[in-house]
Amino acid sequence: MLIKLENIKKEFSNDEIVTKVLHGISFDIEKGDFVSIMGPSGSGKSTLMHIVGLLDKTTSGKYYLEGRDVTTLDDTELALLRNEKIGFVFQSFNLLAKSTVLENVMLPLVYSTKKGDAEKKARNVLEQVGLKHRIDYMPNQISGGEKQRVAIARALVNEPSVIFADEPTGNLDSKSGIQVMEILQKLNEEGNTIILVTHETFTAEHAKRIIYIRDGLLESDTLVKKRRFAHDGDMLK
């Protein structure tokens, strides 16, 4: 089991006003899965992703990543796990504006304890996302779709166990969005586990499974019956 959540709860307290965001969520994700987390805004899906992505801590409940309880880890151990086990793709790309495409992709390796030729690894993943010709460009010299592909390359570079994509097509036109989904599906076929957070059914249906969150509770957890495939021009299969 890659990810196992047991009754995850999360509260935010702000000046004695306690806001309960997650009321107890449990689910498992197997290695090699492609899961969409859906829900309306305010449902807690982003908070859930932050917790599963080790960017935030739970108030109560257990979270096992690759069999290890990560709810008791300190900041430094969490940072190391984020570095080695998790790759993030954000809606707003979050590239370093003053660094080249190659340097952006190499960023996780700066903090990595794994050995190996960082530049070679970065070049390889850039080739995987079809951006070999943009290696020395600055982020402001490439299109939005290309920026998101750089971000995907950055998420891949340290060979993580799971890739989180938070509304990866939210800031893109539909053509670039489809390209991004095609890359994510290809990566999944190659064995990568992918968790996609989105509020669009169309995007969510590219995954194998959809977890629907409403009011801090898991409403449904279903397999996608008619999965969309980006490389077929998004025809239903």
Partner: peptide
């Protein structure tokens, strides 16, 4: 601030 957040997301700890 965003850059710091990103660096932390990709694995930088407080000391880094």
């Amino acid at each position: 601030t965003r850059e710091i957040g990103l660096r932390k997301a990709v694995g930088a700890n407080n000391r880094h």
